[in-house]
Design a binder for these strands. Structure first.
Length: 616
RNA sequence: GCGCCGGUAGCUCAAUUGGAUAGAGCUUCUGACUUCGGAUCAGAAGGUUGGGGGUUCGAGUCCCUCCCGGCGCACCA
């Protein structure tokens, strides 16, 4: 709020003095160190440099014409040409009271945009695993922050519900079926599907033991092969046939496919409900099947794709240097084509084709300003190819939309290798959440014996899930991070439990106040005067700004840091400034400051998809 | 081989157009308790930001080069 005003005024003055300056670069930011002031701008130095001007001279000129006396002390020019702004206490309190009195803690964006956020995207017939936490958590946080800033958001879960794996799944289903197993009715159908997938996959890859087990299951059934015994090749044929029948779209295969989808969706819903994640759309890969042939045809017609070795592929158009061209790869010192396949030799389509059709559909359906893909960093090259191919296919449409891959790194175990169970399997997401809740419960039971059973369960849930989510959001998304139960569940440091605890401490003041018959009067204005309450107050001012930083480069960790600092400022204030023990009107003012800090902490955590508790 | 991403305190991680003295937590040491929830707070110690060179008033951030690690490189997604 105050910050925006300063920025607008500074831009206006710069525009007057240096008419050709790029005003987008004229930014005001919080000071890294309070000794310099509250806000600073380093923009003038860059502007002066580009024009070979003396930066301090320019700064002096700007300051002479800049009148921010309503909200700031005298503007200081520091170092080589920084502008330092110090907020007047009157303006600080006034702004804070405005925020505290409004329904919304955040000013909505001046120009709301429409975003499609593509995240989570689990595969059908497989258990969701630890790898899905990143896309799901980061995507959900981005989605929440955008909405909080007043943008229009469509979340779309692009589930993997189509592809060659269905040949194997269909054979597995049939085999289970004749050997008396009804997967749909199993206690854990996903586990069974996964079991059969692995068995068949092993058998098709030539694992003799798996082939033998399969033949035993099929012995004496109507699924036996002509010579009463399946072999690797006859199995592969069977798998192919099932897939073709599914693709032809009718009959039993289609029904089984539907069942598998339903089973899987049930699992997804269960996990998402535990995580508190919702999607506006769940348009899986299969949704785009009808468009795929047309996409390929169109790309061929326009000369963007051509046949190659029986497949249809998009090659480099030579419009960029080889090093930057994702359609080229160097082999033995030569740049050779690394095309994007859009139709396989067998006539099937792959995910490049689906993704192209998906962009096309999203643009036609929602006209978004931006489509954000929250997907593993390893798929970077794929998205580069995808975005470039789309731009060549539909240049006009592509010019109107920003396509953005928001990548992230891996979760590692404490051995520095990808996080696995002790036996080396991938960790199922459901199991992970269970363990988080169990561990949180143990800690809660140690620390607070006065909770009822129901309260314990609720605290364990909120703290456990929150800890996992926060541990995933707090590091820079692009770096790999080491998964550690002890660290994420610690009550010290930048963790969810610490922040949730800070919140309960704030809330407990109000319980205590009620017990003592002290009412919180919203008419009493906040009037911060002491150093620690001024520091807290100033930090509270920057909530909206922080959300803007988050959205700028899709980095939820900025919000984590902000909230962690907020908790720190609050604790310091709490130590040095008595609230309930002070006299009116200071007591009323401080209560309102506590209230605002609590609201911002809660809303901030909520924007990360993390719940808060009144007590824990 | 080529490309992408990383390498920051003993450990786990930050660092917002290139900005001011690179910050936290853990660990170690020292303080604050008839506590508004001590599940807390204050202080100290800990760094050649992998090495070297360059651009700049200013580099963890940009450029070049080398070393180390991870990942990706035609019909899986």
């Amino acid at each position: 709020m105050l910050h925006h005003e300063l920025e607008i005024q500074l831009k206006a003055v710069v525009a007057k003095i240096v008419p050709d300056a790029d005003l987008a670069s004229v930014l005001v930011r919080p000071c890294p160190d309070p000794k310099f002031g509250d806000y600073q701008s380093s923009a003038l130095m860059a502007i002066a440099k580009a024009r070979k001007m003396n930066p301090r001279q320019l700064a002096t000129q700007v300051v002479e014409q800049l009148d921010v006396s309503r909200s700031c002390e005298k503007v200081e020019i520091a170092g080589p040409g920084f502008l330092n702004f110090r907020i007047k206490h009157t303006a600080l309190n006034e702004t804070l009271n405005k925020i505290a009195g409004a329904d919304q803690l955040v000013e909505p964006a001046a120009k709301p945009k429409t975003y499609v956020i593509d995240f989570s995207s689990p595969n059908v017939a497989k258990p969701m695993h630890v790898g899905h936490i990143r896309s799901t958590g980061i995507g959900d946080a981005i989605q929440r922050v955008l909405r909080l800033l007043g943008h229009n958001v469509i979340t779309d879960n692009h589930i993997g519900d189509w592809g060659t794996q269905f040949g194997i799944l269909l054979v597995g289903w049939a085999t289970a079926s004749v050997s008396g197993e009804d997967i749909a009715e199993a206690t854990d159908p996903i586990e069974r599907l996964n079991f059969w997938y692995k068995e068949l996959h092993a058998a098709c890859s030539g694992d003799e033991g798996a082939v033998e087990r399969l033949n035993q299951k099929l012995e004496g059934t109507n699924l036996q092969s002509s010579d009463n015994r399946f072999h690797q090749t006859s199995l592969q044929d069977w798998v192919r046939q099932e897939l073709v029948r599914l693709q032809q779209g009718k009959g039993q295969q289609r029904q089984i496919w539907e069942s598998i989808r339903e089973i899987s969706q049930k699992q997804f819903d269960e996990i998402y409900s535990r995580l508190g994640v919702k999607f506006d759309q769940t348009l899986g890969e299969s949704f785009y099947n009808p468009q795929l042939a047309g996409v390929v045809e169109d790309l061929q017609k326009r000369g963007i794709a051509r046949e190659s070795e029986g497949a249809v592929a998009v090659f480099s158009d030579g419009s960029m240097p080889p090093k930057e061209d994702p359609f080229l790869v160097s082999r033995d010192g030569e740049w050779v084509p690394d095309p994007a396949l859009i139709r396989k030799r067998d006539g099937g389509f792959n995910y490049m084709t689906t993704d192209l059709a998906t962009i096309d559909y999203r643009l036609k359906t929602w006209s978004p300003d931006e489509i954000v893909y929250v997907v593993d960093d390893r798929q970077g090259p794929h998205f580069k190819k995808l975005f470039l191919t789309f731009a060549r296919w539909q240049p006009d449409a592509a010019a109107k939309v920003k396509l953005r891959h928001v990548g992230f790194g891996k979760i590692l175990g404490d051995d520095g290798k990808p996080f696995k169970t002790r036996s080396g399997d991938t960790v199922k997401l459901g199991d992970l959440l269970d363990e988080a809740e169990q561990r949180a419960r143990k800690i809660v039971e140690e620390k607070n014996q006065s909770l009822s059973e129901a309260e314990r369960r609720e605290v364990a849930r909120v703290v456990g899930i929150g800890a996992i989510k926060y541990a995933d959001l707090a590091p820079n998304r692009q770096t790999d991070y080491v998964f550690s139960w002890d660290k994420m569940l610690a009550f010290q440091g930048n963790t969810a439990p610490y922040l949730q605890y800070a919140y309960t401490r704030i809330r407990s003041i109000f319980r205590k106040a009620a017990e003592d018959g002290i009412a919180v009067d919203a008419a009493v204005p906040i009037a911060a005067t002491e150093p620690d309450e001024l520091a807290l107050a100033k930090h509270l001012l920057n909530f909206g700004l922080t959300l803007e930083y988050v959205v700028e480069d899709y980095r939820p960790n900025y919000l984590c840091s902000y909230l962690y600092e907020l908790a720190g400022f609050y604790s310091r204030f709490y130590e040095s400034c008595p609230v309930l023990k002070s006299d009116e009107p200071q007591r009323g003012s401080r209560l309102r400051l506590c209230e605002l800090a609590g609201r911002i902490l809660k809303q901030g955590l909520n924007a990360l998809g993390i719940e808060t508790l009144e007590q824990m």
